[in-house]
Design a protein around this nucleic acid. Structure first.
Lengths: 240, 240
DNA sequence: TCGGATCACTGGTATAGACAACTATACCTA
DNA sequence: TAGGTATAGTTGTCTATACCAGTGATCCGA
């Protein structure tokens, strides 16, 4: 569990261990963690080292502390630091709507200049291109085109895409998503967009371009979305 | 500077001290802070305590560390955790444009139901209402209407508004802004909006409603903005 | 001149221990 | 019963110390 010989810092090993317990569901929201002193004794490390691991996890939003009581697993709220890194599926569920999806195409193409730049790969490297109409309660909400470097996630199938890509990345590939950037702008629906979204040509739409990165800074996906402005608002909460 | 008799934790006193130096401009972005060991000796406290203060300020985005080199004042970049809590002025500067402003009106009104709800005050309580056309390099960029509870900031004048409201709040009122929420949507310019923004009626615009809160959770301002979609994109970066 | 070794200084990790502040419970007393 | 006291267990703060790891300058030798 904790390897004192490893060059990986002890507090970091403990962090990973606890995150794993949470992700496996062995620790559920509001469960108490062992007291700092107990963990310290159990692993033969000092209390301050346990404390450092707990503190980082509190900062990252995995845990919360109550003085005099203990340290507990935090709820993974959508509103909080996850904001902007959630998938369409999670977001719609959080808004109380039933998410759906309609595949337009699923192909592997060589990366265009723009896509290559966004994904930090060379031009013409293969990328998955997945275009879907996203539904909320059965009504078209957005057109979403996702680009993923094929070398990063090999053998991806349509099935995976229809599940949660994020969950797949975390569970099967043991990679953790850590940051993202988004550009949001207003525009007007083209003929084709209008048709797919069941709105009139020239109706207002919201364009969202979003790039997601792993912990080491590698881009994992680049998504271009066209949302119906009459049904979608982008909500952002910030806490310093 | 640092009072060992005070019940306020030493690391917190040091944090406040450093923030003050940064806000007064005595420490500028990329300036080096004293090494941990030096501060420790200077104030007669242990290095770990200095380290705790530095660490918290790194987490809050005030400082950054380079192993083997030192600890430095961070730039208050738009990209970073400030995102969405910056003023129009700061944001335009960060984008390399010269911000400007054209006052449409400055008045005190009783709060409407919607405004009262956003500012968490009673209906009909007085609020400042400031409507301005915001310019970037002399060209209209947005129409911004700001609502501020009059009881919170008494005796506000047009001059203050033309300076930085954020700076005024922090320096004169000793209040620190800590969180905010924004709702972003797409729409189409009304006749009046089109006229003020020098665009055609029906051109796409971006509506941004934004509420800003103090550390204790009190809303301090509610802003409704209408941005020209042809000149403005909303950029958001997230780091977990 | 170039390259490598050394050194001083920085932050990074880790230990051991002390006391304060806070919570919850049990128990005692008016 | 209500209120105070004692106690055990928790996190919070702080000290003192040690050694590791990265940076950059300086020195030295080929």
């Amino acid at each position: 569990m904790i390897n004192k010989k490893s060059p990986i810092p002890l507090y970091y090993q403990l962090e990973e261990h606890i995150i794993e317990l949470i992700e496996k569901g062995e620790l559920r929201p509001d469960d108490a963690l062992p007291p700092e002193r107990e963990y310290a004794e159990k692993f033969g490390i000092s209390r301050m080292t346990v404390r450092q691991a707990y503190t980082e996890l509190v900062n990252k939003g995995y845990l919360y502390r109550l003085q005099g009581k203990g340290t507990y697993v935090a709820e993974r709220k959508i509103e909080q630091p996850l904001q902007g890194l959630t998938s369409f599926t999670e977001e719609m569920k959080a808004r109380g709507m039933e998410p759906g999806s309609q595949l337009i195409h699923f192909q592997i193409n060589p990366a265009s200049e723009i896509i290559a730049k966004q994904l930090a790969i060379s031009e013409a490297e293969p990328v998955y291109e997945i275009m879907r109409v996203r539904l909320a309660d059965g009504v078209p909400m957005a057109i979403e085109t996702t680009y993923i470097p094929a070398n990063l996630i090999q053998g991806m199938t349509q099935e995976i895409v229809n599940q949660s890509l994020y969950a797949y990345i975390q569970e099967n590939l043991k990679l953790r998503i850590s940051s993202g950037s988004q550009v949001i702008e207003s525009s007007i629906a083209s003929q084709n967009e209008a048709k797919l979204l069941h709105i009139g040509k020239g109706a207002p739409v919201m364009l969202i371009e979003s790039t997601t990165y792993l912990e080491n800074g590698t881009p994992i996906e680049y998504v271009k979305s066209v949302y119906r402005a009459d049904r979608y608002k982008f909500i952002l909460n910030i806490n310093r």
